[in-house]
């Protein structure tokens, strides 16, 4: 199996600011990798770059066999990004948003029902406009989109944020299931213990690059795992 993600000295710029400053990372297919790092370290940028949303200024970047310097579009149906934003239309209902997302990414519509149920989005909520939903409910919807799309690469940015205990457990279960299904998962999280429990390994990011893990906390993570 070729690796799912290969970044070599990748630089990503926002104007003149380097979001990634020469990041190197390799993730094997089927691996669950936890990205750690302070705010602004570059975790979100790495996930967005993996989704083909950010242009690579220099270096090498391949995701699921697609060279991102050549083509950042063709891989998008195979990856799923859970970002800080939900990519929803406030005026459309929960159900309509999910159906649109599935149609747009050519995923079968039959998966919508089970996915909504899995995330506890049922009843009256289905017809509520997303603009009227709570932050946690919007987060669940974004997760439901991901579940229904069943991507080969899951890019999760703070997946536990804003969720209640039950939903957080669901997230952990979803990651485990995705992995059993052969998908690769990159997950950025500040909840070190929780993330360490579901990840195969953790990677420390600082200043827009992967840095050698600070030994003490990394070992704590391994022990928990």
């Amino acid at each position: 199996m070729p690796p799912a993600v290969v970044f070599i000295e990748a630089v990503v710029l926002a104007g003149r600011f380097p979001l990634l400053s020469g990041l190197s990372l390799e993730v094997a297919t089927g691996e669950v990798v936890h990205l750690r790092g302070a705010n602004g370290a570059g975790k979100t940028s790495l996930l967005r770059a993996c989704a083909g949303l950010l242009p690579i200024a220099s270096g090498r970047a391949e995701v699921l066999g697609h060279d991102l310097l050549v083509d950042r579009v063709s891989l998008r149906r195979a990856v799923g990004l859970l970002g800080h934003a939900g990519f929803h239309y406030e005026e459309l209902s929960v159900r309509d948003n999910l159906r649109f997302a599935l149609r747009a990414s050519r995923a079968p519509l039959e998966r919508a029902g089970p996915a909504l149920e899995r995330l506890g989005l049922t009843g009256r909520l289905l017809d509520t406009p997303v603009g009227a939903c709570s932050a946690g409910q919007r987060r669940r919807l974004a997760l439901a989109v991901l579940v229904a799309r069943a991507p080969r690469l899951w890019l999760l940015d703070e997946p536990h944020a804003g969720l209640d205990a039950e939903a957080r457990a669901t997230v952990d279960a979803l990651v485990a299931e995705a992995r059993v299904g052969g998908a690769t998962v990159l997950l950025a999280s500040h909840e070190l213990e929780r993330a360490a429990a579901i990840a195969d390994r953790s990677v420390e990011i600082a200043g827009g690059r992967v840095v050698p893990a600070a030994t003490d906390s990394a070992e704590v993570g391994c022990d928990v795992a």
Binding site: G80, G83, A85, H88, A104
Partner: peptide
Amino acid sequence: ALESADRAGDGLRLSGL
């Protein structure tokens, strides 16, 4: 404005349309 609220435009791009 529709597309920039909640970064829905990114969603359009991500879905590979």
